[in-house]
Design a protein around this nucleic acid. Structure first.
Lengths: 151, 151
DNA sequence: GACATATAGTTAGTTATGCAACTAATATAA
DNA sequence: TTATATTAGTTGCATAACTAACTATATGTC
Protein backbone atom coordinates (compact mmCIF):
# COMPACT_ATOMS: atom_id res chain seq x y z
CA UNK A 1 0.00 0.00 0.00
CA UNK A 2 2.59 2.53 1.04
CA UNK A 3 5.00 1.92 -1.80
CA UNK A 4 2.29 1.66 -4.40
CA UNK A 5 0.70 4.88 -3.21
CA UNK A 6 3.83 6.83 -3.81
CA UNK A 7 3.96 5.60 -7.37
CA UNK A 8 0.40 6.74 -7.78
CA UNK A 9 1.30 10.17 -6.52
CA UNK A 10 4.05 10.32 -9.08
CA UNK A 11 1.69 9.72 -11.95
CA UNK A 12 0.17 13.11 -11.45
CA UNK A 13 3.45 14.93 -11.97
CA UNK A 14 4.23 12.84 -14.98
CA UNK A 15 0.89 13.29 -16.60
CA UNK A 16 0.35 16.92 -15.78
CA UNK A 17 2.31 19.26 -17.94
CA UNK A 18 4.85 16.95 -19.42
CA UNK A 19 3.73 15.11 -22.51
CA UNK A 20 0.46 16.93 -22.99
CA UNK A 21 2.16 20.30 -22.81
CA UNK A 22 4.95 19.16 -25.09
CA UNK A 23 2.46 18.00 -27.70
CA UNK A 24 0.41 21.16 -27.35
CA UNK A 25 3.45 23.40 -27.72
CA UNK A 26 4.68 21.51 -30.74
CA UNK A 27 1.32 21.65 -32.46
CA UNK A 28 1.02 25.35 -31.68
CA UNK A 29 4.46 25.94 -33.16
CA UNK A 30 3.55 23.98 -36.27
CA UNK A 31 0.42 26.09 -36.66
CA UNK A 32 2.48 29.25 -36.36
CA UNK A 33 5.09 28.07 -38.84
CA UNK A 34 2.33 27.39 -41.33
CA UNK A 35 1.07 30.95 -40.88
CA UNK A 36 -2.01 29.86 -38.96
CA UNK A 37 -2.81 32.31 -36.20
CA UNK A 38 -4.89 30.03 -33.99
CA UNK A 39 -4.17 28.58 -30.58
CA UNK A 40 -4.54 24.87 -29.87
CA UNK A 41 -7.42 25.75 -27.58
CA UNK A 42 -9.19 27.48 -30.43
CA UNK A 43 -8.34 24.54 -32.65
CA UNK A 44 -9.91 22.12 -30.17
CA UNK A 45 -13.20 24.01 -30.61
CA UNK A 46 -12.92 24.22 -34.39
CA UNK A 47 -12.10 20.49 -34.46
CA UNK A 48 -15.51 19.67 -33.02
CA UNK A 49 -17.31 22.16 -35.25
CA UNK A 50 -15.74 20.61 -38.33
CA UNK A 51 -17.18 17.31 -37.17
CA UNK A 52 -20.57 18.86 -36.39
CA UNK A 53 -21.35 22.49 -37.13
CA UNK A 54 -23.84 24.54 -35.14
CA UNK A 55 -23.27 23.13 -31.64
CA UNK A 56 -24.32 25.11 -28.58
CA UNK A 57 -21.65 26.68 -26.39
CA UNK A 58 -22.49 24.27 -23.59
CA UNK A 59 -22.14 21.26 -25.86
CA UNK A 60 -18.81 22.57 -27.13
CA UNK A 61 -17.70 22.99 -23.53
CA UNK A 62 -18.64 19.39 -22.77
CA UNK A 63 -16.82 18.02 -25.78
CA UNK A 64 -13.66 20.00 -25.07
CA UNK A 65 -13.81 19.52 -21.27
CA UNK A 66 -14.20 23.19 -20.45
CA UNK A 67 -16.58 25.07 -18.21
CA UNK A 68 -18.97 27.58 -19.70
CA UNK A 69 -17.00 30.66 -18.69
CA UNK A 70 -13.87 29.43 -20.48
CA UNK A 71 -15.96 28.44 -23.47
CA UNK A 72 -17.48 31.92 -23.63
CA UNK A 73 -14.08 33.64 -23.91
CA UNK A 74 -12.69 31.11 -26.36
CA UNK A 75 -15.65 31.75 -28.64
CA UNK A 76 -15.27 35.50 -28.05
CA UNK A 77 -11.76 35.26 -29.46
CA UNK A 78 -12.79 32.99 -32.31
CA UNK A 79 -15.54 35.45 -33.18
CA UNK A 80 -13.09 38.35 -33.06
CA UNK A 81 -10.97 36.51 -35.64
CA UNK A 82 -14.14 35.89 -37.66
CA UNK A 83 -13.65 32.14 -37.58
CA UNK A 84 -16.96 31.51 -35.90
CA UNK A 85 -20.42 33.04 -35.58
CA UNK A 86 -22.91 33.01 -32.72
CA UNK A 87 -26.55 32.58 -33.71
CA UNK A 88 -29.32 32.58 -31.11
CA UNK A 89 -31.44 29.45 -31.29
CA UNK A 90 -35.04 30.04 -32.38
CA UNK A 91 -36.38 27.23 -30.19
CA UNK A 92 -34.66 28.45 -27.02
CA UNK A 93 -33.30 31.95 -27.00
CA UNK A 94 -30.97 31.24 -24.09
CA UNK A 95 -28.89 29.07 -26.41
CA UNK A 96 -26.18 30.31 -28.76
CA UNK A 97 -25.48 28.02 -31.69
CA UNK A 98 -21.93 28.34 -32.96
CA UNK A 99 -21.27 28.14 -36.69
CA UNK A 100 -18.09 28.09 -38.72
CA UNK A 101 -17.54 31.00 -41.09
CA UNK A 102 -16.32 30.70 -44.65
CA UNK A 103 -12.89 31.71 -43.38
CA UNK A 104 -12.75 28.78 -40.95
CA UNK A 105 -14.06 26.05 -43.21
CA UNK A 106 -11.04 25.69 -45.51
CA UNK A 107 -8.67 25.54 -42.52
CA UNK A 108 -9.83 22.05 -41.62
CA UNK A 109 -7.63 20.30 -44.15
CA UNK A 110 -4.45 22.19 -43.22
CA UNK A 111 -4.86 21.79 -39.48
CA UNK A 112 -5.79 18.15 -39.96
CA UNK A 113 -2.51 17.56 -41.75
CA UNK A 114 -0.47 19.53 -39.21
CA UNK A 115 -2.10 17.70 -36.30
CA UNK A 116 -1.40 14.34 -37.89
CA UNK A 117 2.17 15.31 -38.64
CA UNK A 118 2.65 16.46 -35.05
CA UNK A 119 1.11 13.28 -33.70
CA UNK A 120 3.39 11.21 -35.90
CA UNK A 121 6.40 12.99 -34.43
CA UNK A 122 5.07 12.63 -30.89
CA UNK A 123 3.94 9.02 -31.20
CA UNK A 124 6.88 7.90 -33.32
CA UNK A 125 7.64 4.60 -31.59
CA UNK A 126 4.38 4.12 -29.74
CA UNK A 127 2.17 1.23 -30.75
CA UNK A 128 -1.57 1.22 -31.35
CA UNK A 129 -1.98 -1.08 -28.35
CA UNK A 130 -0.24 1.42 -26.08
CA UNK A 131 -2.35 4.27 -27.40
CA UNK A 132 -5.50 2.27 -26.76
CA UNK A 133 -4.41 1.60 -23.19
CA UNK A 134 -3.67 5.29 -22.56
CA UNK A 135 -7.03 6.35 -23.97
CA UNK A 136 -8.82 3.71 -21.93
CA UNK A 137 -7.01 4.64 -18.72
CA UNK A 138 -7.77 8.32 -19.17
CA UNK A 139 -11.42 7.69 -19.89
CA UNK A 140 -11.66 5.64 -16.69
CA UNK A 141 -9.81 8.27 -14.64
CA UNK A 142 -12.20 10.87 -15.95
CA UNK A 143 -15.21 8.69 -15.17
CA UNK A 144 -13.90 7.90 -11.70
CA UNK A 145 -13.76 11.59 -10.85
CA UNK A 146 -16.86 12.89 -12.58
CA UNK A 147 -19.50 10.17 -12.28
CA UNK A 148 -19.56 10.12 -8.52
CA UNK A 149 -19.00 13.83 -8.13
CA UNK A 150 -21.92 14.37 -5.77
CA UNK A 151 -20.64 17.28 -3.73
CA UNK B 1 -2.26 4.59 -42.51
CA UNK B 2 -5.30 6.79 -42.96
CA UNK B 3 -7.47 5.14 -40.36
CA UNK B 4 -4.66 4.82 -37.86
CA UNK B 5 -3.71 8.46 -38.29
CA UNK B 6 -7.14 9.61 -37.34
CA UNK B 7 -6.96 7.61 -34.16
CA UNK B 8 -3.68 9.29 -33.40
CA UNK B 9 -5.25 12.67 -33.88
CA UNK B 10 -7.92 11.70 -31.42
CA UNK B 11 -5.44 10.88 -28.71
CA UNK B 12 -4.60 14.51 -28.39
CA UNK B 13 -8.15 15.55 -27.55
CA UNK B 14 -8.51 12.69 -25.13
CA UNK B 15 -5.32 13.33 -23.29
CA UNK B 16 -5.38 17.07 -23.28
CA UNK B 17 -7.73 18.54 -20.76
CA UNK B 18 -9.77 15.52 -19.87
CA UNK B 19 -8.21 13.29 -17.29
CA UNK B 20 -5.38 15.59 -16.33
CA UNK B 21 -7.74 18.49 -15.78
CA UNK B 22 -10.18 16.32 -13.86
CA UNK B 23 -7.43 15.13 -11.54
CA UNK B 24 -6.08 18.65 -11.10
CA UNK B 25 -9.51 20.06 -10.32
CA UNK B 26 -10.26 17.35 -7.81
CA UNK B 27 -6.95 17.78 -6.04
CA UNK B 28 -7.42 21.54 -5.95
CA UNK B 29 -10.87 21.07 -4.44
CA UNK B 30 -9.49 18.67 -1.83
CA UNK B 31 -6.84 21.24 -0.92
CA UNK B 32 -9.50 23.91 -0.53
CA UNK B 33 -11.75 21.70 1.56
CA UNK B 34 -8.83 21.03 3.88
CA UNK B 35 -8.31 24.77 4.27
CA UNK B 36 -5.12 24.79 2.21
CA UNK B 37 -4.87 27.92 0.12
CA UNK B 38 -2.46 26.65 -2.53
CA UNK B 39 -2.98 25.90 -6.19
CA UNK B 40 -1.92 22.60 -7.71
CA UNK B 41 0.68 24.51 -9.70
CA UNK B 42 2.16 25.86 -6.48
CA UNK B 43 1.95 22.38 -5.00
CA UNK B 44 3.90 20.93 -7.93
CA UNK B 45 6.78 23.26 -7.02
CA UNK B 46 6.57 22.56 -3.29
CA UNK B 47 6.49 18.82 -4.09
CA UNK B 48 9.96 19.03 -5.61
CA UNK B 49 11.31 21.24 -2.84
CA UNK B 50 10.13 18.76 -0.22
CA UNK B 51 12.13 16.15 -2.09
CA UNK B 52 15.14 18.45 -2.44
CA UNK B 53 15.24 21.89 -0.87
CA UNK B 54 17.25 24.78 -2.32
CA UNK B 55 16.86 24.12 -6.03
CA UNK B 56 17.44 26.91 -8.54
CA UNK B 57 14.47 28.39 -10.36
CA UNK B 58 15.67 26.88 -13.63
CA UNK B 59 15.96 23.42 -12.10
CA UNK B 60 12.48 23.76 -10.64
CA UNK B 61 11.22 24.77 -14.07
CA UNK B 62 12.81 21.68 -15.60
CA UNK B 63 11.36 19.35 -13.02
CA UNK B 64 7.87 20.78 -13.34
CA UNK B 65 8.03 21.22 -17.13
CA UNK B 66 7.64 24.99 -17.11
CA UNK B 67 9.54 27.76 -18.85
CA UNK B 68 11.47 30.20 -16.74
CA UNK B 69 8.94 33.01 -17.03
CA UNK B 70 6.14 30.84 -15.63
CA UNK B 71 8.47 29.62 -12.92
CA UNK B 72 9.32 33.19 -11.95
CA UNK B 73 5.67 34.14 -11.40
CA UNK B 74 4.83 30.93 -9.61
CA UNK B 75 7.64 31.57 -7.17
CA UNK B 76 6.56 35.21 -6.88
CA UNK B 77 3.20 34.00 -5.63
CA UNK B 78 4.71 31.37 -3.34
CA UNK B 79 6.96 34.06 -1.89
CA UNK B 80 3.99 36.39 -1.37
CA UNK B 81 2.35 33.63 0.67
CA UNK B 82 5.62 33.20 2.55
CA UNK B 83 5.85 29.53 1.61
CA UNK B 84 9.18 29.95 -0.11
CA UNK B 85 12.27 32.14 0.00
CA UNK B 86 14.68 33.23 -2.75
CA UNK B 87 18.35 33.29 -1.81
CA UNK B 88 20.99 34.43 -4.30
CA UNK B 89 23.67 31.78 -4.79
CA UNK B 90 27.12 32.78 -3.54
CA UNK B 91 28.91 30.84 -6.27
CA UNK B 92 26.91 32.39 -9.11
CA UNK B 93 24.93 35.49 -8.35
CA UNK B 94 22.69 35.04 -11.38
CA UNK B 95 21.12 32.05 -9.66
CA UNK B 96 18.29 32.18 -7.14
CA UNK B 97 18.11 29.20 -4.82
CA UNK B 98 14.60 28.53 -3.60
CA UNK B 99 14.09 27.38 -0.01
CA UNK B 100 11.01 26.25 1.90
CA UNK B 101 9.98 28.41 4.85
CA UNK B 102 8.93 27.07 8.23
CA UNK B 103 5.35 27.66 7.15
CA UNK B 104 5.69 25.39 4.13
CA UNK B 105 7.58 22.53 5.75
CA UNK B 106 4.73 21.08 7.84
CA UNK B 107 2.36 21.16 4.86
CA UNK B 108 4.16 18.27 3.22
CA UNK B 109 2.39 15.59 5.23
CA UNK B 110 -1.12 16.99 4.68
CA UNK B 111 -0.72 17.53 0.96
CA UNK B 112 0.91 14.12 0.63
CA UNK B 113 -2.15 12.52 2.17
CA UNK B 114 -4.58 14.57 0.10
CA UNK B 115 -2.70 13.81 -3.10
CA UNK B 116 -2.68 10.10 -2.33
CA UNK B 117 -6.35 10.15 -1.45
CA UNK B 118 -7.13 11.97 -4.71
CA UNK B 119 -5.01 9.54 -6.70
CA UNK B 120 -6.81 6.62 -5.09
CA UNK B 121 -10.14 8.06 -6.19
CA UNK B 122 -8.85 8.80 -9.67
CA UNK B 123 -7.03 5.51 -10.18
CA UNK B 124 -9.64 3.38 -8.45
CA UNK B 125 -9.78 0.48 -10.89
CA UNK B 126 -6.54 1.07 -12.73
CA UNK B 127 -3.77 -1.46 -12.34
CA UNK B 128 -0.12 -0.88 -11.67
CA UNK B 129 0.68 -2.32 -15.09
CA UNK B 130 -1.55 0.23 -16.79
CA UNK B 131 -0.02 3.08 -14.83
CA UNK B 132 3.45 1.95 -15.82
CA UNK B 133 2.43 1.88 -19.46
CA UNK B 134 0.96 5.38 -19.26
CA UNK B 135 4.07 6.75 -17.58
CA UNK B 136 6.31 5.04 -20.10
CA UNK B 137 4.28 6.28 -23.07
CA UNK B 138 4.30 9.85 -21.78
CA UNK B 139 8.04 9.80 -21.17
CA UNK B 140 8.61 8.59 -24.72
CA UNK B 141 6.23 11.20 -26.16
CA UNK B 142 8.10 13.87 -24.26
CA UNK B 143 11.45 12.55 -25.44
CA UNK B 144 10.25 12.32 -29.03
CA UNK B 145 9.36 16.01 -29.02
CA UNK B 146 12.20 17.47 -27.00
CA UNK B 147 15.31 15.47 -27.87
CA UNK B 148 15.27 16.31 -31.52
CA UNK B 149 13.95 19.81 -31.07
CA UNK B 150 16.64 21.45 -33.17
CA UNK B 151 14.72 24.42 -34.50
C1' DG C 1 -51.37 33.85 -14.41
C1' DA C 2 -47.74 34.31 -10.72
C1' DC C 3 -43.87 32.72 -8.17
C1' DA C 4 -40.06 29.63 -7.62
C1' DT C 5 -36.60 26.98 -9.85
C1' DA C 6 -33.55 25.58 -13.45
C1' DT C 7 -30.66 26.51 -17.45
C1' DA C 8 -27.44 29.06 -21.01
C1' DG C 9 -24.50 32.38 -21.25
C1' DT C 10 -21.72 36.64 -19.55
C1' DT C 11 -18.73 39.24 -16.47
C1' DA C 12 -15.36 40.19 -12.66
C1' DG C 13 -11.44 38.70 -10.27
C1' DT C 14 -7.33 35.83 -9.61
C1' DT C 15 -3.84 32.59 -11.20
C1' DA C 16 -1.28 30.52 -14.75
C1' DT C 17 0.70 29.84 -19.45
C1' DG C 18 4.04 30.93 -23.40
C1' DC C 19 6.82 34.06 -26.24
C1' DA C 20 9.83 37.81 -26.83
C1' DA C 21 12.55 41.44 -25.28
C1' DC C 22 15.13 42.89 -21.56
C1' DT C 23 18.91 43.17 -17.38
C1' DA C 24 22.65 41.48 -14.88
C1' DA C 25 26.21 38.24 -14.07
C1' DT C 26 29.47 34.88 -15.85
C1' DA C 27 32.28 32.53 -19.30
C1' DT C 28 34.94 32.56 -23.59
C1' DA C 29 38.06 34.32 -27.00
C1' DA C 30 40.87 37.89 -29.19
C1' DT D 1 42.00 42.57 -20.64
C1' DT D 2 38.65 44.00 -23.27
C1' DA D 3 34.93 42.56 -26.47
C1' DT D 4 31.51 38.95 -27.34
C1' DA D 5 28.53 35.32 -26.21
C1' DT D 6 25.97 32.70 -22.93
C1' DT D 7 23.09 32.03 -18.96
C1' DA D 8 19.52 32.97 -15.02
C1' DG D 9 16.01 35.52 -14.05
C1' DT D 10 12.42 39.39 -14.80
C1' DT D 11 8.91 41.99 -17.24
C1' DG D 12 5.34 43.11 -20.87
C1' DC D 13 1.84 41.28 -23.62
C1' DA D 14 -1.83 38.14 -25.01
C1' DT D 15 -4.53 33.91 -24.19
C1' DA D 16 -6.62 30.80 -21.19
C1' DA D 17 -8.17 28.50 -16.83
C1' DC D 18 -11.64 28.30 -12.71
C1' DT D 19 -14.94 30.20 -9.24
C1' DA D 20 -18.60 32.97 -8.07
C1' DA D 21 -21.97 36.26 -8.91
C1' DC D 22 -24.86 37.96 -12.31
C1' DT D 23 -28.72 38.41 -16.43
C1' DA D 24 -32.15 36.58 -19.24
C1' DT D 25 -34.99 33.00 -20.83
C1' DA D 26 -37.72 28.66 -19.91
C1' DT D 27 -40.13 25.43 -17.13
C1' DG D 28 -43.03 23.75 -13.43
C1' DT D 29 -46.37 24.22 -9.77
C1' DC D 30 -49.93 26.17 -7.18
Amino acid sequence: MSNNQFKRGELYSVVNGMATTAVARRLQKNFRNAGLDITIEQWSVLYHLWKEDGLSQLELGNRTFRDKASTTRLIDNLEKQELVLRVASKEDRRINLVYLTDIAKPLQQITYELANQTMNEALLDITKEEIDIVKNVFQRVYDNLTNKDLI
